[in-house]
Design a binder for these strands. Sequence first.
RNA 1: GCGGACGUGGCGGAACUGGUAGACGCGCAGCGUUGAGGUCGCUGUGGGAUUAAAUCCUGUGGAAGUUCGAGUCUUCUCGUCCGCACCA
Length: 705
Amino acid sequence: MASKKYILEMFPYPSGNIHMGHVRNYVIGDICARYHKLKGDEVIHPMGWDAFGLPAENAAIQFKTHPQDWTLKNIKNMKDQLQKLDLDLDWDRELATCNEDYYKHQQELFIDLYNAGLAYKKDALVNWDPVDQTVLANEQVIDGKGWRTGAAVEKKNLSQWFFKITDYAEELLNDLDNLELWPEKVKTMQKNWIGKSIGAEIKFKIIENDVFLNVFTTRPDTIYGASFIAVSINHPIVKKTLDKKKIENIKNKFSKISHEKDKMGVQIPIHCKHPLMDKKIPVFIANFVLDNYGEGAIFGCPAHDERDYEFAKKYSLPIIKVIECDDDALPYSGDGVLINSPLLNGLNKDDAIKEIIKIFMKEKIGNEKVNYKIRDWGVSRQRYWGCPIPVIYYENGDYRVLDKEELPVILPYDINLKGKGNALINNDEWRKIICQKTNKIAYRETDTLDTFVDSSWYYIRFLNNKLTKPFRKEDINKMLPVDKYIGGIEHAILHLLYSRFFMKALRDIHNLKVNEPFQQLFTQGMITHKTYKTKNEWIMPKDVMLKNGKLMRVDTKEIVTEGPSEKMSKSKKNVIEPGEILENYGIDATRIFMISDSPPDRELEWTDDGIQSSKNLIHRIERYFDQEKNNTDEETERRVERFISDIEKNILAFSLNKCVADIYTLFNYLEKNKIFLYDNILSKKILICLFPILPKLSLSINRKL
RNA sequence: GCGGACGUGGCGGAACUGGUAGACGCGCAGCGUUGAGGUCGCUGUGGGAUUAAAUCCUGUGGAAGUUCGAGUCUUCUCGUCCGCACCA
């Protein structure tokens, strides 16, 4: 039964050269695609280039070239390299995100999102990468550091464009359950990132000025144990209460804390009224309250929360037990019977939560609330080499999102990249325009879109890369979702979450029938290699030789120590160049080694023995088909039939290492029993099975027979 | 701390719904071909007992359980890797 199969590997960033990770990725996908083509399926197997992004700008400055020239040259080079891998790709679908013919459609999608209320501009405290001189999305900040530069991220208040991914938080979370062919690990990571929690929002009245302070909690049942309120240093109430200098002082104090988890707080001169009791509660600025979660404010219940407990101990605040437990069990955050809580006494935790929310609603002091960790996706980047955002600003500060008829906004080629920051700001020739609608002077938006926007819909553009609009509805409904998407796990949150959001947003805007972009996700493992080091530096494996049982450096004869197998990386120099391997071992051996040894989703250790034995297998198969034909028997037929079904089963299950074992098993049997098939019909069957894995070998033998 | 994955020879890894554990490969050992090496061919290779064969014992991190039967199922426990982490 023929059907459509959309096989996709994550498209590469054109950094200059293909590396072994690409080779593994694309060989896995290629085997899949070739298999389905053999089965008569309508296969889409495209390739393109994730071509915008900062490395091009940095390289342009370093090598005195232009980001576009550098990128296009790299694309050409890498395309040559890819074509040497015998990949069956639909090159007529090729696209590069830096081409006008791609990004102009993206500008249209931006307008769609804007019109649907899913793109908006706001002042926000954003993550600023001081090295790359640009804003980063929350997803791009890892351990407080920029994902590319590793530089400590600063907080900056800037006016920025956002995509309203939070509108889809619930659906993005729920639909994970339907993605049965995604790795559990990736789904869990997305689940955690979305971070849904159910609780209550409570309004605390500030006694001094009759304003209300909103607080989010998952434990409203412990409200009678509240003995302080704590807010983040960036909470609006702080600005209203303290002057700038004092705020700066506190910020400084907080930043000087030695242990990250130590608690520190400063009481401010306001108090809240307890919503259910006649009680004054002090308000603190506390270092452990996050400004980007919930309301940026909490009520502290020291008896039943570890952090609140620690804080209360340090500042001698009352610890009021409201859930029955031993005193030495404090802080106790488990379930139990409510005490010291007039309206809740005797209830357990869950019932108390339900009851107290009812009371809050009745008294109009709070309500049930679902809170998500995920924030809206900040897409503005203060960089030149990206998709221009189709927006103009008037001299009075107003802005207008352009109409589709006014597109494209073309990124200017002439640019001076020498200064710091975004070069577009200084390019008045491009920036300053006369607004077609108002005839007023206007300035173009100089921020460009995050490159993750580019990669959020490229799988859609592949369906028809020549269309004068971004896509055709029928194509999407017919060809999406992608059946098998293969790539590295490093995109578990970023790219894969953004793409899911994009698909859903476009579905709602254009009334599409597709909910998810990628039906099956397969995350391939890294390639590792032993590391080698002389006294002072890492050296490449090819510069190491073994002499008298000792490892030494080929040119200087220095003693070399061998380290454990680690992910191939330029810094540790434990890389193997695909070009050299292809030259020395050939495409067939390279392909088969990529899938030998380890299952494709696990690490693959590169070894010289491994690639050599792959080469030996290729020679062995060639030699086998040189032998003169003799008689076969039924057992041989059975063996070949089993081989066929095993290969099919294992390709479909991505158990490609088992395919290699199947090949060995078959040839072991044939050679051991001296059964030579030559041009027997069974040979054809075997060669067809070998074709997806070893296309070149299979074809060349077939020609000979 | 929370969550996920996993634990099988010297190594990478097989074992479909419980049914001969270790397929297949690497490595290693012996022999042969070649004779500089690599390639190539044959044999052996979980551990232990036995001169050897036959044979026996033991064996999937550990402990207990279900079962005629457990690498596989259940409970507990130990360990490794990964992700998130002051998330109220």
